[in-house]
Amino acid sequence: MIRGINLSIHQGDFKLSNLNFTIEAKEYVVLMGKTGCGKTTLLETICGLRKLSSGEIWINDKNVSNEVPAKREIGYVPQDAALFNTMTVKKNIGFALKIRKCNKQKIEERTNELAELMGIDHLLERRIDGLSGGEKQRVALARALSFYPQILCLDEPLSALDEDTKGDMIELLVKLKQNLDITVVHVTHSNFEASKLANKVLYFEAGTITHQKKFR
């Protein structure tokens, strides 16, 4: 469960204030709103990449407001995927486990498992430069899931993809939602994505959540 209590985030002229929300465990929540309304900022704040001006963020029963990103154990897929371009696909996926000093065999197993799940096993030895947009997003997803996080944050993961690839990615996300016991926070401005994926939609406008809608 993720809870935001009276969150305020200031960044230059941009302001999010008195934000309150609850995201239940295992829920697939879509954050919707126009470009520039603060969705990405909120996502980055949940991940610990932005400082709170005031308020608290709780993950399960723990106040993580002052925790560094590494301690929050949240898988994060930014809009541009931000893959490590000095490494191969395989090294990207195995990175989080390597930092956790897991042994080689464990890293290898997990990398192969995720590569198979994402349908990118044929790309493992490739470098990042030559990958297509869809492939990059799959690698970024695999990398974010590698360390078994309880929460996954996706920042417009489909916005840069063409229609066909987008369809494939939505299928993949539906599959992940069904197979993994994981809370997902997905930022988008597409109603179509929301209708296909969300259990709950939080609507954002001018720095506040205006209303929410529950799906199945």
Binding site: G48, V68, L83, I99
Partner: peptide, 20 residues
């Protein structure tokens, strides 16, 4: 961006600097 992602993957600032 890559350093930020590395932080979410479990790196501290120093590890993000040297690895990424």
């Amino acid at each position: 961006r890559q350093e930020q992602v590395a932080l979410t993957l479990g790196c501290n600032q120093k590890q993000a600097f040297f690895n990424i």
